[in-house]
Amino acid sequence: MSTTTTRPATAPATAVRSNPVKLGLRQGGLEIRQFLRSRESVVFTMGFPVIMILIFAAIFSDEIAPGVSYTQYFITGMIATGLMTVSFQNLGIWIPIERDRGVLKRYRGTPMPKWVYFVGKIIMVIAIGIAETVILLAVSVALFDLELPATAQKWWTFGWVAVLGITACTLCGIAMSSLARTSRSGSAVITPVALILQFISGVFFVFTSLPGWMQQVAAIFPLKWMCQGLRSVFLPESFGATEPGGSFELGRVALVLGIWCVVGLVLCLGTFRWTTKRDG
């Protein structure tokens, strides 16, 4: 991560009485600019999924089912991983850095409403998530013949899976940020969790080829259901029969992701800290 000093990404105090929408958009713009200033974050968040697709496409060329190549299957998982990275992993690492440097403490001392800080983070996550997804889709269509959804219903499914998934991951990332005691420990806490979830959720391997106990563990967490929901969008309907439940189970996808949104919100409300323990 970048070692440059992070300045509070907050709107000036004179804008406290401004329109709430303007406050949120202003904060979101500041968060996006701060993210883009960190070359490490930009390269890892935006470039890593594309690099992984290129590597896996060069290694695996077999079909895992009639009309479904391994690359096409892997692409759906990387889209889900990209959304998780920009939300869960990015927030879980950067919020402890801001807390340790006193950014959050200074923010709490300003007259700005506290919700503005979180709205700014959400806007940043949405903006970067959309940009990353567009890049992944463009690369996949251009190089690997990925077929984009042909019906409005499939685009609708793509939309709600992405929205519920990124909401759950954002809330969980904010909640997990409180586990890191220092700025340096944020990456050590979050990155292993993200990597383990990727390995057991059907991102790098075909989900049904994993051990049964591993599938059951993965089914507890959002990433598995994000991947499954996206497979229903980009892979043939017939592929649903190969899923563990015999179909894409979109109703269950929505239910689990919705539950995680509620769980993440409860955890955020109960665990988020503006200061480190040494600050009191």
Rank of each mutant, 00 (worst) to 15 (best):
Y117P: 05
F118P: 07
F118G: 07
V119E: 00
V119G: 03
V119H: 00
V119R: 01
G120C: 08
G120W: 00
G120E: 02
K121C: 11
K121R: 14
K121D: 07
I123L: 14
I123T: 11
I123W: 00
V125E: 01
V125F: 09
V125M: 08
I126Y: 01
I126T: 13
I126K: 01
A127G: 09
A127Y: 00
I128C: 11
G129W: 00
G129A: 08
A131F: 05
A131P: 08
E132K: 07
E132T: 12
T133P: 04
V134H: 04
V134S: 11
I135N: 06
I135S: 13
I135Q: 06
L136W: 00
L136C: 12
L136I: 12
L137P: 04
A138T: 15
V139K: 13
A142G: 08
A142C: 10
A142D: 09
L143N: 07
F144K: 09
F144A: 11
D145M: 03
L146C: 12
L146R: 02
E147K: 14
E147W: 01
L148F: 04
A150F: 00
A152D: 09
K154T: 12
W155A: 11
W156L: 14
W156T: 15
W156D: 10
W156V: 14
W160G: 09
W160R: 10
W160P: 13
V163R: 03
V163K: 05
V163N: 07
L164A: 10
G165C: 07
G165A: 11
C169A: 15
C169M: 14
L171I: 04
L171W: 00
L171R: 07
C172Y: 06
G173Y: 05
G173N: 06
I174R: 01
I174E: 06
I174K: 03
A175G: 15
A175E: 03
A175N: 09
S178H: 09
S178N: 13
L179P: 00
L179D: 01
L179C: 05
S183K: 10
R184D: 14
R184T: 13
R184N: 13
S185P: 02
G186K: 05
S187T: 11
A188I: 08
A188W: 01
A188E: 05
A188S: 15
V189N: 05
V189L: 11
V189A: 13
V189S: 08
I190F: 02
T191M: 14
T191P: 03
P192Y: 05
V193A: 12
A194V: 12
A194K: 02
L195D: 02
I196A: 13
L197A: 12
F199I: 12
F199Y: 14
F199H: 02
F199P: 11
I200V: 14
S201C: 12
S201M: 07
G202P: 10
G202Q: 01
G202L: 04
V203L: 03
F204C: 06
F205Y: 12
F205W: 08
F205D: 03
